[in-house]
Amino acid sequence: MNPGVADAALEGGSAPVGPRRGRLGRPSWPLTILMIAASLTVLVPLYFTIVMAFKSPAQIGSGSGLEFPSPIVWDNFARAWEMVGFGRSLMVTALITVFSVAGAIVVCSMVAYAIARNWHRRAYKVAYIYLLSGLFVPFTVLILPLIKLTAMLGIDGPVGVTLIHIVGGIAFNSLLYIAFLRSIPLELEESARIDGATTWQVFWRVIFPLLGPMNATVGIFAFLGAWNDFLLPQMMIANPELQTLPVVQQLFQGEFNTEYNLAFASYLMAMVPTLIAFVFAQKWVMSGVMRGAIK
């Protein structure tokens, strides 16, 4: 790939994801209408989820599902919360996510820094290639032995899931960090070293803060991956009391379950945290993900 293109895209992607500057002329109305119509494919299912969550069982049984709820049943949320043990699940999912994000950032930035600054040494080059091989090992190959292993070590629960989330991202995240570290001038750390800082102090006080944008990118990927993951917790967490939010939604799929109002109330509660976070941090998330996409 032409590196010039990637650089230009990165520059374009980091700040003005918004309207392009310098574009003249009036907006195209036919195109605007077409795009709004297309966006209904996203909005209608969301609208559907919201109205379903507020309906009474009787209303769900009678209509197509798209009608406005009448009466509005707020109680659905409290009952769904109780039924799936939502509070506990939320806590487990939040803890897994927080530690996965923090772990990914700390572990990967450290190894990337060590490799980038010792690139002239054989051992570090070998470590780099070793970690890179992780890009080619698909999850499906190791999941079965992995579950045996975590069960043997007694971490077949949220701890194991967190560790695997961190491991799964090592190859890709380290690559991102190493590419980014190349753009940080060495002079900055040299002056800190001359002032007597140790390697750890240099890393934490000089390098780590400079990695900010890449920390954001890695953090967003780790967040979305951990929060929404289904396969790993479903397979690995042995104790159903400690299951994550996506997995507990399976509860409503039982053959005898007809309480769709509670199911949708629960789906909506599972969607809301990331939805709100995204709407508020949109610009930041988009530029962060785009940075990862380009590298």
């Binding site: 309207p19 002329g25 009036r26 795009m35 979305l224 929404n228 939604q249 599972a270 949109q282 998330v285």
Partner: peptide, 30 residues
């Protein structure tokens, strides 16, 4: 479409990117 000269670009773009942050499993149930 998002790159072209359309009105209300930012809100429209927000809507299109919402599915990115949702759990695929929950979306599939809906």
């Amino acid at each position: 479409g998002l790159n072209a000269n359309i009105k209300w670009r930012t809100p429209i773009r927000t809507v299109f990117f919402i599915p990115m942050v949702l759990s695929a499993l929950v979306v599939a149930y809906v």
